[in-house]
Design a protein around this nucleic acid. Structure first.
Lengths: 217, 217
DNA sequence: ACCTGAACACCGTTCAAGT
DNA sequence: ACCTGAACACCGTTCAAGT
């Protein structure tokens, strides 16, 4: 007989994202999420079939936050930039969730919607089929790759380390063997993640604009 | 008094990578790695200080496998492509390890060496400082981003799913709302990850070649 | 110095039972 | 239909003790 459900899918989603934002990824367990909702762990299995599904809810919540101005962009490059930037900002607003976004394949409507919007903008360059696929791979690869670089690349900050300390560590390397690494570590000190994202996206857009629309492939 | 050590750092490393390759990431636990080496879990703590260090050993092992021809590349673009491709292939040779490479920050000599080599090649374009940093972010972001796309992007295969089934799923989407998504899903069927990597790297290299070397930034 | 078993505080999930 | 506690097979790690 129809007992009304105690929770909803989107309630779990919101609670899971809040928990990750507050406690970090290690704090996201079935037991912790359940107690956040005032129930026992097994209750969650009425809404998801496995732990992994909770991760997907979080990914969907983050990507679903991406919003960009719905204008008639005169240049397709500006439209691509607007969508890419919106995704970048949504991801960066939830740094603890980044590993999930990097490693979980989501097939939620929110992901499909933003993907299609990005493809629509890229298609205005005259691309379709494999040319469009490659352009999409390159742009979305750059977004996730840049988010990843800050999280885990050689220049990423150690957990509780200041930027100064990171640079100091690089300055301690042998100058003759790691001259360029030391150079960019210094440059990173006067730089922001946002400006690096903007500039590297511009590099890729220059390449996308120069090519023939991928039709020759 | 000096009892000889039973294992070595690099023995752990090799065993950990072999375990991940064979059993997947979920199979890499302190207990499993220890029993692989014929000892108890606690013995490992004589070589690493925490579980996380095992992950770093694996990342280092994979990146350390990158090898490229040490030629006098006439064009810096070809040198960048050679190093980027070597990294790409090393990563793709160990698909189970990809989530670790995406999420663990490694500061091992192997990572520093290949980073410096990449920077040396990129610097030949006339870049230094922030221009070099951005070029590096873009190239390495593209490598990890493309590896990630195959693992977890919207077009990634489900765990045990055939390419045909993935495409069938996309074909079932409403054509009017997801026309481009369906288009690239079809294109992906006639494409390989290697060719997509090559083509998207070429797009970025075109952008890097067109720009002024980043000195105007 | 290096090795290691017992024990502790977690974890996801199966099972069986409740309404 | 939905809820839930007990129990099971894991996990990383602390502790204390061995050589």
């Amino acid at each position: 007989m129809g007992r009304p459900a105690k929770f909803t899918h989107s309630l779990l989603q919101a609670a899971a994202l809040a928990l990750v934002d507050r406690e970090g990824l290690a704090g996201l367990s079935m037991r912790a999420l359940a107690s956040e909702l005032g129930t026992g762990a097994m209750t969650l299995y009425n809404y998801v079939s496995q732990r992994e599904d909770i991760d997907l809810l979080v990914v969907e919540a983050v990507i679903g936050e991406a919003r960009w101005p719905l204008l008639d962009y005169a240049r397709w490059q500006d439209e691509v930039r607007a969508i890419a930037t919106a995704l970048w900002q949504a991801v960066r607003a939830h740094p603890h969730a980044i590993p999930l976004i990097l490693t979980r394949r989501s097939r939620s409507p929110a992901v499909f919607e933003v993907t299609e919007a990005m493809l629509r903008a890229l298609a205005r360059s005259g691309r379709s089929g494999q040319g469009l696929l490659v352009a999409f791979r390159a742009v979305s690869g750059l977004i996730t790759g840049l988010a990843q670089a800050e999280l885990a690349g050689p220049l990423a900050l150690q957990a509780a380390e200041s930027a100064e300390l990171t640079i100091a560590r690089f300055r301690a390397l042998p100058l003759d063997r790691f001259a360029h690494l030391i150079d960019i570590a210094n440059a990173a000190a006067d730089s922001t993640a946002d400006s690096e994202f903007r500039a590297s996206l511009d590099l890729l857009l220059a390449g996308l604009s120069a090519a023939d629309g991928g039709r020759a492939r």
